[in-house]
Each structure stands twice: as structure tokens, then as C-alpha cells.
């Protein structure tokens, strides 16, 4: 496994958030993680990103233990529900931020930023400031900013939750296209069943800190705890 999580545990004030959980993600695969608010999915992502420390357990990336590594060293980018663009930087400066902190030569940086903006359809917005962009455009910039540094793993914490339905669908298509092009290894957290199925090659569910991995869509659909059957029944009832 490219990314391996072994027996990770976390509790706050004695209240367990994550029960010992283990899983792995192969290189170039997207694992969708479904979970309700407060189920511990954000805590899990933050632990993998190095932004929180686990109470127990280990994390391996490319067969190296990274449990105690700083976020900077891991090469794992965390994308929040909000794009969190830097408000004082333009679109191109935001996208090139990861290269700026790595002190990449300006000419190489410009080429990479232009290429990324071209892929994301942001060329005409290059000089705009974040507050002049729509929600979808902001999220595309956030993706570009993450992708340009070729992260080993991307952690996406409900990145499309704040978008309207149409923009959300466009972003899902865009992410799938970019994931294939860049061979992205990712954990995609969502509370939307349909989005989880669309985005992930594998599916997992996190409930009250417990982890359930589904190796096929069929097994995911059959488990009544995922809520898929309730959803299907709801739509069937509406069928005239």
C-alpha cells in the first residue's frame, strides 16, 4: 500500500473520536470516505496531514513511517471545505504559492503556473484577487495550488460542500479528470452518498470513529448502515 494507516486512535478530553482504525490506499487511487458531521473524519485527515497528533498508531507513506513528521515534510496536501485562498494574493500568486515557498526559479514557476491555470481554465482570471472569483473558481484555484507541488497524497475534506449543485457536478468532473492526469492518490471525504460513489475507486464509511472499508460498490450498496438503501427507497416512493 502506498499510504498505510495502522491502529490510529484519538480522543479529546477522554471522549474517543477515533477508535483504533487501519486502512491503506494504493498509489493513484481515490478512496471516498463517507461520514456524518462529528464522525471523526476531519480528525482522521488532520492526523494523516500531520496537523494533529494521534494518541496511538502509525502512518506509513511509501513504506516510510511518517507518524512524527511535520506537515511540511510529508508532501500531503489538505484541502478544506472552504478554498482558503490567500486574500492578498492574485490567482496566479495563489497557485504558485507552494513553488514560492520551495524557492523554485521564477521562470520555471511561471511555466508551471501557466500550465496549471490552462488546465483549470483560469488563464483569463490570472490577475484577479480571490474576492472577485465565484465559489467554483476559488475551489479550482485551491486545487491548482495543491496540485502544482505534485503532492504524494491529497486529502479533501468535503471540498464541494459549499457549492451549488451544478458547480458541484462540474467540479466533480474536473477532479476526476485531474486525478487521472496527475495520477493522484487521495482521500475524498464527503457526507454525500452520490458524490462518494462518483469520486472514489474504493469506498469507506466512518461512524462514531469506527471504520468500515468496502472493496466493491456492491458491498457498499448492500450495507444498510451506509444509508444507500434508505436513499433508494425514498426515490422509489416518489416514483409515480
Amino acid at each position: 500500500m502506498y499510504l498505510k494507516v495502522n491502529d490510529i486512535e484519538k480522543a479529546y478530553d477522554g471522549h474517543p473520536i477515533l477508535q483504533p482504525l487501519s486502512f491503506g490506499v494504493p498509489k493513484g487511487k481515490v478512496l471516498s470516505v463517507l461520514g456524518r458531521s462529528g464522525s471523526g473524519k476531519t480528525t482522521l485527515l488532520k492526523i494523516i496531514a500531520g496537523l494533529e497528533t494521534p494518541d496511538a498508531g502509525t502512518i506509513y507513506l511509501e513504506d516510510q513511517e511518517i507518524t512524527n513528521w511535520s506537515p511540511q515534510k510529508r508532501g500531503i496536501v489538505y484541502l478544506y471545505q472552504e478554498p482558503l485562498l490567500f486574500p492578498h494574493l492574485s490567482v496566479q500568486e495563489n497557485i504558485g504559492f507552494g513553488l514560492t515557498v520551495r524557492k523554485v526559479a521564477p521562470n520555471i514557476k511561471n511555466d508551471l503556473v501557466n500550465e496549471m491555470m490552462d488546465h483549470l481554465g483560469l488563464i483569463e482570471h490570472r490577475s484577479k484577487m480571490p474576492d472577485h472569483l465565484s465559489g467554483g473558481q476559488k475551489q479550482r484555484v485551491a486545487f491548482g495550488r495543491a496540485l502544482i507541488i505534485s503532492p504524494k497524497v491529497m486529502l479533501l475534506d468535503e471540498p464541494f460542500a459549499a457549492l451549488d449543485n451544478q458547480t458541484r457536478m462540474q467540479m466533480q468532473v474536473m477532479f476526476k479528470r485531474m486525478a487521472t492526469r496527475h495520477n493522484i492518490t487521495a482521500l475524498f471525504v464527503t457526507h454525500d452518498i452520490k458524490e462518494a460513489i462518483i469520486m472514489g475507486e474504493e469506498l469507506a464509511c466512518i461512524r462514531d470513529g469506527h471504520w468500515q472499508l468496502y472493496h466493491s460498490i456492491k458491498s457498499f450498496l448492500q450495507d444498510h448502515l451506509t444509508g444507500v438503501q434508505d436513499e433508494i427507497n425514498f426515490w422509489k416512493k416518489l416514483d409515480p
Binding site: 496537523l51 506537515p71 511540511q72 500531503i76 496536501v77 478544506y80 490567500f86 504559492f97 515557498v101
Partner: peptide, 28 residues
């Protein structure tokens, strides 16, 4: 929390504490 998340974004993008202050927190 939003500022904290922004600071954390800098770290996961490869920046250090000094860069987080100099390039993001202080300018904003």
C-alpha cells in the same frame, strides 16, 4: 478557526512557520 486553517494550509503546502507569518499571516 479560519485563520488557523489558512496557516495550516501554508504548512501542508510546504511552508514553515516563518513563511506562514511573513507570506500570509502578517500581510492579511
Amino acid at each position: 478557526p479560519k485563520r488557523k486553517a489558512m496557516e495550516e494550509s501554508v504548512y501542508t503546502l510546504g511552508g514553515n512557520v516563518w513563511q506562514a507569518y511573513r507570506m500570509v499571516l502578517i500581510p492579511t
